[in-house]
């Protein structure tokens, strides 16, 4: 029964994903996007297949960028959308059911 329910949910999620995939296809076909410049094309074609650990700083950069987006979002959501007080000691629901 549980397995059936999970399978049904996977089917529903797959349908939603298929819908978005279809919409993406329609968008790409309907949009005339210019061919990127030569430099970009060369860079995209020559991306290395193997990992380059010397580029670890890029991982740090992306993490910082994600953190900045989270902090920016946090400031906006906290200022505008806070429905209940989150003062010290107030428990938080972990939505486990």
């Amino acid at each position: 029964m549980t397995l059936l329910r999970v399978l049904l949910r996977i089917v529903l999620l797959s349908l939603a994903a298929a819908l978005f995939t279809g919409l993406t296809g329609i968008y790409v076909r309907s949009k005339h996007s210019p061919v990127p410049n030569r430099q970009w094309q060369v860079a995209r074609r020559n991306r290395p297949s193997a990992p380059q650990f010397s580029k670890f700083l890029e991982v740090v950069g992306e993490s910082v960028q994600l953190g900045l987006f989270a902090v920016a979002g946090r400031i906006v959501f906290r200022l505008r959308l806070l429905p209940v007080s989150t003062r010290e000691g107030q428990p938080i629901r972990l939505r486990l059911h």
Partner: peptide, 15 residues
């Protein structure tokens, strides 16, 4: 995705 993931983190910060 990166931008929305940041906002997703922000809105679920307490959790």
């Amino acid at each position: 995705v990166l931008l929305l993931a940041g906002f997703h983190l922000a809105i679920n910060w307490e959790w």
